[in-house]
Nucleic acid binder design. Structure first.
Length: 745
DNA sequence: GAAGGCGGTCTTTTT
DNA sequence: GACCGCCTTC
């Protein structure tokens, strides 16, 4: 390892600065991971630090795995004793050893988003809360936010005080927490909060980990929330060897509680912190980098910085506005295909980035039709599927039956004639007698007012589980799973429920995948245990991409920009660059100006994924929530100076006409004749004639969808006029006069 | 208790 | 357009 030759000056400084708090401000593509990995190797190789004294915290499993791999490449097997993982997985490991101190069973389970929802539903029912007045989702978010700020139910109660609505949330929070606890579960936020609690309440435990983790590094520091900050603060307080790496411009998880001020104020919190800035970008051409810079500089809350590169200008960034989402997808797919057929690229060189997951549908269709290999990188989908939820609930019930929620889930799957009324009675009975829900099943005869038919069904369900449990003692997990599927005729059930054969096939694939995962787990674990299995996998969202057919590498990747963080591709498409989608309506309409800034950071992340060629696309028309929505080009496009952009409108026109499906041709023609392009900033040489709308400020107008409203202002937006209208029912909206077709009243 | 129909909501992003 | 929960009917 020759630090001075293999790293630049700043990177080398970051590596050599091993004592005390260090803040590495690492711009996109500045060799951040490289620096971290070298730093760890340096600590071990040059400073004589024992590998097991190093803790590296990341935000995603992907990042953790990459880091592990790279450090292993550098220092070999010794790397195995370093602790590298996500905040959540590290906390799980700590809690695994100490959960009993907090009163949890040592085999606690992790409640994922779906589990949270069903627990919340149960809580609402018991407390008699109206989900219409207090939507579950919002409540879950509030509770999650409280936990991020380390507020337990008691603290929340005193914070709520006499405020009625807050008190309601507080009551729900208390009951929710009790339910989780009695099910032996922790949700994601609990993992962090409880670890902090453990450290605060048991100083000897904290001391143990302080000694263990003498050197702490935190990646993606800009995404940490308050509880995570507290955690690393506690852990690092003794030796103070805390090195955080991040980029405030890439903070994109505020909605999940990330506190950007953790990084913005790091130097205030640690006045003696050594600060290194990595500003040389090794990834992108200067056109791409300059575009990214010019977008992000519109944000107010950021540390000023200047990314630069030795790379040449490269190609200009292309922007294409197509007429609808299908044409947008077709444009991208054709573009990729032509690049590949010319032999310039392989499929694996391309990534298509989207703002939302739903956007992938059209893109997938377009790629599939053209036989282009692709993969969609999806979040937690696998473990969140109905089939997997069902079957793991079965497995856990066979294993121990402790978790009421899981038993309830499957007691009537497939239909056995055990309805909600009876389930509730059993639940009440179990509480009254202080036994578990599953135990109550064996005493179903003692529960009054359950119909005889139902009782018989419950008995046979209970006996089946006990039977499989007994027989399964010396079977592999996947064999037990097969037994369950057989005994319940689960496949028949799926077939009868499935709305399409395609879906059924997919579900069977999921089952096969689950079996595989179970087998792999049993193979590589000394003392396999289903609770442990669930815990590991509940935290690892997408290991679906591990398989991926013949050549998993050579595929076009479709993913959200959130998912793309930390990755890079020779060619990147950013699809859906439209006002209302990106930035999304929620952020535009938010009264918090920081909301749009977060979207802009996401845009910055997207742009900086591209190494050589970046294409931005948008659709004028898009189906959203079952209705057509017209949108103007994203403001982010307008923030990119023209000199970095290439707008080849002529090309677009011919492409567009070719791609229209015959059935839509007529409608499309009509559409083109009527509608001038909405995109407005690129005025030079416009041959469009813009017409002054027939209304003026203060006039009452009618919109085909939004109804009546009053014109607030009309602004010259280049090719078209931008009209702001305050609608009586839907509030203030901005639109282009050419599109909106407002009628004067 | 189950099945089928209706109406409301959702789509931001994830550990 | 899809999904979910609620309601009605059998």
């Amino acid at each position: 390892m020759d630090i001075d030759r293999e790293l630049n000056k700043e990177q080398a400084m970051a590596v050599r600065c091993t004592n005390g708090p260090v803040l590495i401000l690492a711009g996109a593509g500045s060799g951040k991971t490289r620096t971290i990995v070298y730093r760890m190797a340096y600590l071990i190789g040059e400073m004589g630090v024992a590998p097991w004294n190093i803790l590296a915290l990341t935000f995603t499993n992907k990042a953790a795995n990459e880091m592990k791999e790279r450090i292993r490449d550098m220092i070999g097997e010794r790397a195995g004793t370093m602790r590298v993982g996500t905040f959540h997985s590290i906390c799980v490991r700590i809690l695994f050893t100490h959960a009993e101190k907090l009163g949890y069973p040592p085999k606690f389970e992790i409640a994922d988003t779906t589990d949270q929802k069903s627990i919340m539903k149960d809580v609402y029912k018991r407390l008699g809360v109206d989900p219409k007045r207090y939507p579950e989702k919002i409540t879950i978010n509030k509770i999650s936010g409280a936990k991020d700020e380390l507020m337990g139910p008691e603290e929340y109660a005193s914070f709520a005080g006499m405020d009625f609505a807050l008190k309601m949330i507080s009551n729900i929070y208390t009951e929710y927490q009790k339910t989780l606890f009695s099910n032996g579960m922790m949700d994601f936020d609990d993992l962090i909060m409880n670890t902090v609690r453990l450290f605060n309440e048991f100083p000897e435990v904290l001391e143990e980990y302080r000694e263990r983790f003498k050197y702490i590094m935190v990646d993606e520091y800009q995404d940490t929330n308050t509880s995570q900050f507290e955690l690393i603060k506690l852990l690092s307080a003794k030796y103070r060897n805390l090195c955080v790496v991040g980029d405030d411009d890439q903070s994109i998880y505020r909605f999940r509680g990330a506190n950007i001020y953790n990084i913005l104020n790091f130097e205030k919190y640690y006045p003696d912190a050594y600060v290194v800035r990595l500003e040389e970008n090794y990834r992108s051409t200067s056109n791409i980098l300059d575009a990214a810079n010019s977008v992000i500089k519109n944000n107010s809350e950021r540390k000023p910085k200047a990314l630069w590169t030795k790379e040449g200008e490269g190609e200009k960034i292309r922007y294409r506005q197509l007429d609808d989402a299908a044409l947008e997808a077709a444009f991208i797919a054709d573009d990729i295909r032509s690049r590949v057929s010319k032999g310039e690229r392989e499929y694996g060189d391309f990534a298509i980035l989207t703002r939302t997951n739903i956007q992938s549908k059209e893109l997938e269709d377009a790629l599939r039709i053209r036989s282009i290999d692709y993969d969609v990188v999806k979040g937690l989908k696998f473990w969140d599927t109905k089939v997997i939820k069902d079957l793991t609930a079965y497995l856990m019930t066979v294993d121990n039956g402790i978790n009421e929620m899981r038993v309830r889930r499957i007691i009537n799957i497939p239909k056995r004639g055990i309805g909600n009324a009876s389930i509730d009675k059993i639940s009440v009975f179990s509480r009254a007698n202080n036994i578990t829900f599953f135990e109550a099943l064996s005493r179903i005869d003692n529960i009054p007012s359950v119909p005889a038919k139902t009782k018989a069904a419950v008995r046979s369900f209970y006996e089946m589980i006990v039977r499989i449990r007994k027989e399964g003692r010396d079977m592999s997990f996947s064999a037990i799973l097969e037994r369950i599927i057989e005994e319940c005729s689960y496949l028949d059930y799926l077939l009868s429920e499935a709305e399409s054969s395609e879906k059924y096939r997919e579900q069977k694939e999921y089952i096969a995948k689950l079996k595989e995962t179970l087998d792999a787990y049993e193979d590589e674990t000394d003392e396999p245990d289903l609770t442990d299995f669930m815990r590991i996998n509940g935290l690892e969202g997408n290991n679906l991409d591990k398989e991926g057919g013949d050549d998993p590498k050579n595929k076009v990747l479709i993913m959200t920009m959130h998912n793309a963080k930390g990755l890079e591709f020779p060619e990147v498409y950013m699809a859906g660059m439209e006002e209302g989608l990106f930035p999304g309506y929620a952020s535009i309409n938010s009264d918090d100006p920081m909301a749009v800034e977060e979207e802009r950071r996401l845009c910055y992340v997207g742009i900086t994924r591209a190494k050589e060629r970046l294409t931005l696309t948008g659709a004028r028309r898009r189906m959203v929530n079952g209705e057509t929505r017209y949108s103007a080009a994203s403001r982010f496009i307008k923030e990119i100076p023209g000199k970095f952009l290439n707008l080849n409108q002529a090309v677009e026109k011919t492409e567009r006409r070719e791609r229209i499906a015959p059935s839509n041709r007529e409608a499309a023609h009509r559409y083109f004749e009527e509608k001038p392009p909405a995109f407005s900033t690129l005025k030079k040489g416009s041959d469009m004639e813009k017409k002054l709308p027939p209304y003026k400020e203060g006039d009452r107008v009618l919109h085909f969808k939004f109804g009546e409203g009053t014109v607030l202002s009309i602004a010259d937006g280049g090719r078209d006029y931008e009209v702001t209208v305050e609608f009586d029912n839907v509030g203030v909206r901005k639109m282009f006069a050419g599109f909106a077709k407002l009628k004067l009243l």
